[in-house]
Design a protein around this nucleic acid. Structure first.
Length: 443
RNA sequence: GGCCACGUGGCGGAGCGGUUACGCAGCGGAUUGCAAAUCCGUGUACCCCAGUUCGAUUCUGGGCGUGGCCUCCA
C-alpha cells in the first residue's frame, strides 16, 4: 500500500519513498525535561507513535527495519532555572522529569522508540560538528560563543518558507553585539561555574539548543534519513537551524527527506497557558481518564489540524472506546482492516480511520485493527481495573450488587432501587446486561 | 507588518466537481419492574461575494473571521 505524507519542505503531500527501503529512519524531537509533560507535548508523541506503528506494519521485519529515534533534551536553561528554584541538582530535575515522562506516555499506549538518546551523552559529537562547521566557514567564534553564520548558507529559510529579509523585518529581539549577522544563532555558549558545562576548544561551556538534534540524528540515523518530525512551532527556528547545521557540516543537499509537523491544540477554546488556568498535564488527566481515552481524543482530529481539547470530546472518546472494546472482547486478533490502513496511509488520516472502525462488523478484524492505532485489548480495556481507583472499595461494591440482585429476584423493587442509589452515591454506575450486572466508575 | 493554517449539520469531524460520511447528542421504536446499557430507525450541513463550469461545499480571486510562527514554546 502506498503511503503519502505531507512534507513541510514542499508544502504538499508526497508519496513516501524511503531512502533505503530495507531501513526506514525517523527522528522526532522529544521533550526538554524540566516539568510535567502537558497535552500539547503529548500530541507529537502520540501522532508519531501512530506513524511508527504504521511504518512497522508497512515495512515488516525481517526484510525491513524501522528505526525510530526520539531524544531527551536534558541540557537547557529552563532546566537550570528549575533546579535553582527548587534548590536541587540538575540531574535530579532531569532524572525525575524523564521518569515521569516515561510513565505518563506509557499510559497513553505509546511504544518506546528504538533509541532515546540524551543530549548530555552526545556533547562530544556536538563539539566535533561545531569544529567542522568552523573549519568549513559556516561558523565563527565570538566572545566565548560559537555562532552559526547564517548568510554562509544560500538557501537558509527554505523549510520555514521565509526569506532572511522577512525575518529581520519581524525581529523582535535585541541582537547580541557579538553576532556578525542578526540571524546568526548559537552553537555553543560559555557556562559560568554554577552552570553545567563541558570543556571545549572554546572554553568551558554548553551547547545551543539546535545542535543536539543534528548530532544525535547523525549518530543513530546517518547524515540523511527519511522523516523528521515535531510540533509546528519547531519549524522555525529549531528545525530550520538543525537542517542548516547538518547540511553545512556534512555537505549534503538535505537532512531529512520528509519533514512533518503536527498542529497546535487549544484547551476549551483558549490557548493553553498557565496564566489562563487551563494548563493540562498528561499526569493530571490520567488521574481522571484512562490513557486510551486521551489517546483517542488526540487522534480524532487530523494531526496537522488545530483542535480544541474539551471534556466533551473526552466523554465522546470514552463512549467510542467502550463500544469497540465491548464489541471486540474475547475475539482473537484477525487481519487489519484494509480501509483503515489505507486511511492511515493517506497522511495519517486518523479521523477517517476511526469512522471506518465504526463500520467493522467482524469482531476479529476489529480486534486486529485496533492495535495498529495503539489500542490494545489485552490490558482489560476501559474496564474498572484500568481506571484509577477513586477510593472505591470493590468488595463493598460487589456485596451491594449481590444484595441488589437478590432484591430484584424477590421483586423487591424499592430495595433494589435503594441499593442502586447507594452505589451511585459511592460513585459507581451499574448496568444490567444479558450476562449479568457490571459496574463502572460514574462520571 | 511578513509568512502559514483553518472556517462543514446542535457538537466533534472526514471527504468529494454532480451520489448516505462517520461519531456524539436529540427524536421515534424495541427491550427493561423502572433506569442505565444494548438493538433498530431517524439528520440533504458545508463563512460571504465574484469567477471558471452543464453543475462548486469541493477549483480560482477577493472579503470577513479564528488560530499559529517571526530565536530556544510541542
Amino acid at each position: 500500500m502506498e503511503l503519502t505524507l505531507y512534507n513541510t519542505l514542499s508544502r504538499r503531500k508526497e508519496v513516501f519513498e524511503p531512502l533505503d527501503p530495507a531501513h526506514v529512519r525517523m527522528y522526532v524531537c522529544g521533550p526538554t525535561v524540566y516539568d510535567f509533560a502537558h497535552i500539547g507535548n503529548a500530541r507529537p508523541i502520540i501522532v508519531f507513535d501512530v506513524l511508527y506503528r504504521l511504518l512497522k506494519h508497512l515495512y515488516p521485519a525481517p526484510a525491513h527495519k524501522v528505526t525510530y529515534v526520539r531524544n531527551i533534551t536534558d541540557v537547557d536553561d529552563k532546566i537550570n532555572a528549575r533546579a535553582a528554584e527548587e534548590g536541587i541538582s540538575i540531574e535530579e530535575v532531569t532524572e525525575r522529569t524523564t521518569k515521569q515522562f516515561h510513565d505518563d506516555i506509557a499510559a497513553l499506549g505509546v511504544l518506546e522508540p528504538d533509541v532515546e538518546p540524551r543530549a548530555t551523552d552526545h556533547i562530544k559529537q556536538m563539539i566535533v560538528m561545531i569544529e567542522q562547521l568552523i573549519a568549513k566557514g559556516h561558523a565563527y567564534e565570538a566572545e566565548g560563543h560559537v555562532l552559526f553564520d547564517v548568510p554562509s548558507m544560500p538557501d537558509y529559510g527554505r523549510l520555514s518558507n521565509r526569506s532572511i529579509d522577512d525575518m529581520l523585518a519581524g525581529a523582535r529581539v535585541d541582537v547580541a553585539p557579538y553576532k556578525r549577522d542578526a540571524m546568526d544563532f548559537v552553537l555553543w555558549k560559555p557556562s559560568s561555574e554554577d552552570l553545567p558545562g563541558w570543556n571545549s576548544p572554546w572554553g568551558r561551556g554548553r551547547p545551543g539548543w539546535h545542535i543536539e538534534c543534528s548530532a544525535m540524528s547523525e549518530c543513530y540515523l546517518g547524515r540523511e534519513f527519511d522523516i523528521h518530525g515535531g510540533g509546528v512551532d519547531l519549524v522555525f527556528p529549531h528545525h530550520e537551524n538543525e537542517l542548516a547545521q547538518s547540511r553545512c557540516c556534512f555537505g549534503t543537499d538535505r537532512m531529512a527527506k520528509y519533514w512533518m509537523h503536527n498542529g497546535y491544540l487549544q484547551v476549551e477554546g483558549r490557548k493553553m497557558s498557565k496564566s489562563e488556568g487551563n494548563f493540562k498535564t498528561i499526569n493530571e488527566l490520567l488521574q481522571e481518564w484512562p490513557g486510551e481515552v486521551l489517546r483517542l481524543t488526540m487522534l480524532k482530529t487530523h494531526y496537522r489540524q488545530p483542535f480544541d481539547w474539551t471534556v466533551k470530546a473526552l466523554e465522546e472518546s470514552q463512549k467510542n472506546l467502550e463500544k469497540w472494546y465491548d464489541r471486540a472482547a474475547g475475539s482473537n486478533h484477525g487481519e487489519v482492516e484494509p480501509g483503515v490502513c489505507a486511511a492511515l496511509c493517506d497522511d495519517l488520516n486518523t479521523p477517517l480511520a476511526f469512522s471506518l472502525l465504526h463500520q467493522i462488523d467482524d469482531k476479529s478484524i476489529l480486534a486486529g485493527t485496533l492495535p495498529l492505532l495503539g489500542f490494545s485489548l489485552n490490558a482489560g480495556g476501559l474496564k474498572v481495573g484500568s481506571q484509577p481507583a477513586k477510593n472505591i472499595d470493590s468488595g463493598l461494591i460487589e456485596q451491594l450488587i449481590k444484595n441488589r440482585i437478590e432484591a430484584r429476584g424477590a421483586k423487591n423493587w424499592a430495595e433494589a432501587d435503594r441499593l442502586r442509589d447507594e452505589l451511585l452515591s459511592l460513585g459507581v454506575e451499574i448496568k444490567d446486561g444479558p450476562e449479568g450486572t457490571t459496574w463502572e466508575v460514574a462520571r
